[in-house]
């Protein structure tokens, strides 16, 4: 009982430490003053300023477009990649492919970003929307593979065999049996890729070039001149949006689990 109390206390402390800065930041987004200290009273002025800052709005839209496009494309490529790794006959090929996949996940963003910069300049691709999109797709693919592959591996071989036995060809098996089975993994991969893309700074910083920017890079460059509370307002909005995303993901995965768990329906 006592042990439990200490455990709870610890948990609360951890969450408080993690969330206090965020709530502090959100609170001051409503400050009518100019700085992050000295509360001057409630006001929505920074939100209005943000709304009037067309460059900032443009960057937010660009960031969302990049995140959405890159995660959709990475999900498609990553899903087929996972299928391919799973189809590989020899265990050696499988392991080699998987390790190559993991290396990309664990290598520092700075190195990935720098290598993309070198690569893009070498092939003469001008830095901007396309270079950011390509690099975001590239670093999202391994994440999708990692989310999809376990689902594929837990899928019984007999399901594929049964579908073939009933007359289905390769594409019909994929479309009607395999993809529906791994759909929860694909969704998880998509949302992971989306969040990775939304908050990536290091890789993007290298490949944005002049003019084009994403939110994280823009906030960083503005912060060097001292943070205006406009940024706080933006962060508050972003925080709420990610909270909503997390809830959506939670409900999707919960529904997916319920369908697969026998007996749960009966107890409902």
């Amino acid at each position: 009982m006592k042990k439990n109390k200490i455990g709870n206390l610890y948990l609360w402390l951890v969450f408080i430490v993690l969330y206090v800065p965020i709530f502090y930041l959100i609170t001051y987004s409503f400050n009518s003053g100019k700085y992050m200290h000295g509360w001057k009273g409630f006001s929505l002025i920074h939100y209005c300023q943000l709304w009037a800052d067309t460059r900032m709005i443009e960057i937010v839209v660009d960031t969302l477009i990049i995140a959405f496009l890159s995660s959709v494309l990475a999900t498609i490529i990553g899903t087929f990649g996972a299928l391919w790794i799973n189809f590989a006959k020899s265990q050696l090929t499988k392991n080699i492919l998987l390790n190559f996949n993991s290396i990309l996940l664990v290598s520092p963003d700075v190195i990935i970003g720098a290598s993309f910069l070198i690569f893009f300049t070498a092939i003469g691709l001008s830095l901007g929307f396309l270079s950011v999109l390509l690099s975001h797709i590239a670093f999202s693919i391994p994440i999708v593979v990692l989310m999809v592959l376990p689902r594929l591996q837990e899928m019984p071989v007999t399901l594929t065999e049964a579908a073939e036995d009933l007359g289905a060809n390769f594409w019909q098996v994929l479309n009607k049996v395999t993809l529906p089975y791994i759909s929860s993994g694909i969704m998880a991969g998509f949302f992971m890729a989306l969040t990775y893309s939304l908050d990536d700074f290091a890789v993007t910083f290298f490949v944005t070039g002049n003019g084009f920017s994403t939110l994280s890079v823009e906030i960083y460059s503005r912060a060097r001149q001292g943070i205006s509370l406009e940024i706080n307002a933006l962060s508050a909005i972003m925080f709420i949006v990610s909270l909503i995303l997390v809830f959506i993901y939670y409900f999707i995965s919960r529904n997916g689990n319920r369908k697969r768990t026998p007996g749960l329906e009966a107890t409902k």
Partner: peptide
């Protein structure tokens, strides 16, 4: 197997869960 006029009842049934 998808072109043979035989069909199988599998040991673990292999029903499509979706």
């Amino acid at each position: 197997s998808n072109q043979r006029k035989v069909n199988t009842v599998f040991q673990n049934y292999a029903l499509f869960p979706n």
